[in-house]
Every structure is written in C-alpha cells, then in structure tokens.
Write a protein that binds this DNA or RNA. Sequence first.
RNA 1: GGCCCGUUGGUCAAGUGGUUAAGACACGGCCCUUUCACGGCUGUAACAGGAGUUCGACUCUCCUACGGGUCACCA
Length: 557
Amino acid sequence: MDTTHANLRMAELLFPHITKTPKDYEALYPQRDLPQGAMVTRIAPSPTGFMHFGNLYGALIDERLAHQSGGVFYLRIENTDAKREVEGAVDVILTSLNAFGLNFDEGATNGEDRGIYGPYRQRDRAELYQTIAKDLVLRGLAYPCFCTEEDLQALHEKQEAEGANFGYYGKWAAHANITVEEAEKYISEGKPYVVRFRSPGKEENRIKYKDLAKGEIEMPENCTDIVILKSDGIPTYHFAHVVDDHFMRTTHVVRGEEWLSTFPYHLQMFEVLGWEKPAYIHTAHMLKQDGTSKRKLSERKDPEARLTYYLQEGYPAPAVIEYLMTVLNSNFEEWRNKNPEADLNEFRFKAEKMGVAGAVFDIEKLNDISKNIISRMTGEEVYEATERWAKEYNPEFHRLLTRNPEYSKAILSIGRGGKKPRKDFTVWSDVPHYMAFFFEETFETDYPFPETMSKGDIVRVLKEYPEAYYDTDDDQQTWFGKVKELTDAMGYAVDMKAYKADPAAFPGSVADISAVLRVAVTGRTASPDTYAVMNILGKDTVLARLKKAAEALETKD
RNA sequence: GGCCCGUUGGUCAAGUGGUUAAGACACGGCCCUUUCACGGCUGUAACAGGAGUUCGACUCUCCUACGGGUCACCA
C-alpha cells in the first residue's frame, strides 16, 4: 500500500464527516479589498470573565494600527478551552473596550457576529479547523496520537532523566508512525486521541524572523509534533491562530511576548500550509514594582491589573489611553506637549517605536496625565463625566450631585477655563470629597480654626463680618478688600510681607482672618477660593454657616 | 536545566561610534500666594559588570550577573 493511499484512509478514518476542502474556505473567505498599506488586526481574548490591563495595551496597538492605516480591527473570541469559559464574558470584553473608546469594525458582538469572516468564536469554527487538519493528514503532515496523560508524563520524566529536550518529537514520538489499522483498532475501542502536526523541522536548524517591535529574532526551528486538535476536535491555540489569522486575512498579529517561545510552531505551520505569514508584533509585559524586584502585573495581587479598577476609580478613559501611549511610543509625550489640544488619533503610532523591554507600571505618571486631562475640561464636561461615574459607582453621591445640576456645574467650574486651571481631580472619585461641603448632608463641622487665634477674635470675625462687611454684590477684589478692612480693624496685619518680617508685632494676619471665614463656610482649612465658594453657596447659606460656626464655638468648653 | 527576550537616573524614556548623555513623572529648594490647587525658576540623580573591535564606545562582538518568558489536549 502506498503512503498516499494510507493517508487517504487515515484522513477518512479521522474525519469521515468532513467533506469540504481548504479550497472551499479560500473561496468562502476572500482576500480583503483594502487600500495599499491597510492593516488588518484583531484582539483575540479568551472569555475568562475579566479584562487584564495587558488586553487593553494590546488592543490599543491593534486599534491604532488598523484605523490609522484605513484597515480593519476585529474581535475574535478564543474560546477553545471550554473549561475556562465564563458566562457573560463576551459582554465584559465588549463593555470594557467600549469604555476605553476602542471600537471594532468586525467580529463578535452581543448578538449576531458582524462581518463575513466569521463565525468569530473559535468553537463555532470547528469544521474549518478539521478541514485543514484533514488536509494535513492527507498530505502525511498530521497523525492521530493516542498517548494518555500518563504516557506523556512518563515521556517527560524519561526525557528529564536523559537530559533530552522535552517534547513529542523524533524517537520520542511514539505514534508518529501509527498505521491506519492500529488507529482503527484504538478508535473502535473508544480511545480518545489528539491530532498532532508532523513537524518537518530539525532541531539544529535556525530560523530568523523580523518582529516589528523586537527586531530580528533567531531561534531553533521547531521539530516537535505539537497537538493541533484536542481530543474534543477543537484546536489548540497554535493551530487556531494560524488557521484563523490566515482565513480572517489578518495582516498584523499583536500579542504578548509569552508567545515568542512558540513562535517557531506558528511560522512552520504557515510555511507548510503554504500561506502568507502575517507581520508579528510581540509586546513586552507591563511589570509591577514589588519591593526591590519587578514582576508581571498580577490579577490576584494587583488591583490595577484589572481594567475594572480604572473604571471604578474613575479615570477618564483618555487618560488611561494616553498613559499607554506614552509607554508604547516614546515620542508620544513629546508630541502631546507640542499639541496639547490635538486629538489623540492625529498622533501617528509606529510599531517600530515600541520599547522592547517591559515597563514598570507607574501609577504616578498615569495620575499626572489624568489630572492634566481633567484640568483641560470645562465644568460642564467634568459634571457630565462625574455624573456617569457616580451613577455606576457611587449612587449616594450621585443623588447629591444631580439634585441641582446647575449648582453642581457651578461648583465644578471654579477655577477652570483659564491659562492655569485648577488641578484638583485625578479621578472622578476625588469629586465627592471635593464637593462635600457644598451639601448640608456632607458638610463637616469640626471647625479647624487657626490655633494661634483667641476664641474671642474668631467669634468677632464670625459676627462682625456678616454684619458690617459681607455684601454679595462685591466683586472679588472688593470682597477681599473688605476682609482686609476687618483685619485692620482687629489690629491684625494686612500686609503679609510686613507680617512675615516681624510676626511678633501682630496678633495675626489677614491669612488668619481669611482662614476663619474659610473654615466657617467650608469646614476645612483647604478649599478653592472662599469668594467663589460663598458666591455659589449663596447669601442665606453663608450667613447660616457663619452663625452656626459662631454658636458652635461659643458653646464649646 | 534547555531555548528565547531584555538591562540608560527612583519610574517612563531619548540616544544607533565622537553629545556638557535630552525630556516627562516623582523627590528637594527658591519664588508667587489669604488656604488649597496651579504657575515660574532651580537642584539631586543613570549607560549592570568584565573582556574585546576601534583613534574613539551607551551605541558593534563575546562572556558573566541579574530580571522576564516558555518548555500542556491553557491561552
């Protein structure tokens, strides 16, 4: 019997239900009709129920590459491992990426898939993978392997004892030359089996490939017969990747550098299948400073590893994206400094500009970026964003915030819009505390008045100010002028320079008098401009608070 | 252990054989200032180690150390 005939029998034995050929799929999934240079990228997460920061990192690269080249960015769900799949996980993927403004042109959705290269969930593509696997068997490039877990374990131990490289290859590949008769017998006995790729490679050969981020990479050629179809007929990642990215016509594969070590499998399969290889971009991992050492961001240990963290804290999505851009493309920051107002998408992202080493996640930097982004927003925009955040993550505050939107907007507009805007907020969850004293429910009355002032003087300020000086018609300058008048009347220093030069000559200064008013009205020593606060609070509230503070002080001890 | 990737200040990083080795964040100081938040000026601080190649190495080569990844019918 010639080998071709044996292959044919083996293929029919393994895949009696497969009637299509690779050609049918080539026709089903046509080459994409895209302009020159357009990139087709994808994000291909596993539906495990949460999104890692690294997912966003990769997704951003994919999205930028595709969209700035006029290409296609699609979503493929890698659910080949049924054990790890979590219900509702696709929703999590969709909403997370949507929250960060990354939009797909094609792929899996909540409902029907979008696009003609689907289905976009790998488990639904079983027939395709099996068709390609059958073709490989036909060509003698794949074979069934009936080794059990124990067999493989034993193999591993033997290899360890002999100091051989681990893996299913060469003389270790027990079933590499299995006959159709043997396979038939095992199958009739109901033995489970996998399908292995018959690697044509030699260990001593070296292969080279140019990674767009890492540059030239040199590695030994693959010689192991890796599993391409698991016993349930579903492919392993390696096979699914090659088949899908070929038929979905992906031009650029962006993935973490953990794939570098299995990269030779993929290259070899593209080679053997006669398919054009995509370009690859292997990205370094984000690290976390842990004491004196660095390690991968960990879902378990690091809250910031999960994408939901940023949503909960209330980072504006563009802040996270811009932070990632500064890590990804070293020239981004420079560009941003020159073009502070420009749309992020005007920046030309280049894979070649990516760093090769893993970057330590720097939340301080993220915070700085976030703070600056928020500082450029109007009060109205801050209100809208805070409202959206609070609705989801702080319902109690949401009620206060939205009780009187105009009032809230006025508060959030303090010190905004000028050349040197206030930078009070890093995240939306900073807003509730900032605004707290504007609501009676959260106004605190501990009254940290200046300790250097006598109770009598403090009470005098609280009583005389509303009686003789407070006028809601005053502008900022007049308002402060009156505070100075009161200061002077009390014998306190009006001129701060004079006071600093000789503090002992005065009981206190205008700073103290201002502090009394501030503490009475806001309940704190630190707040935005007291004049602006009083204006927003309104006359009645201001008077009531001054009175309340005086009473509190008088009844104390 | 094998294979692979990496290593410039505390952090992110520019740099591609000749530089006073940028810039940003963080930190310190000064100034501004009625608090805070800003803003301005300014300071500390780096090429992992060794051997080569070269007139000259942060840049090229090799070795060592350290860090990371991977060696599954997980992705």
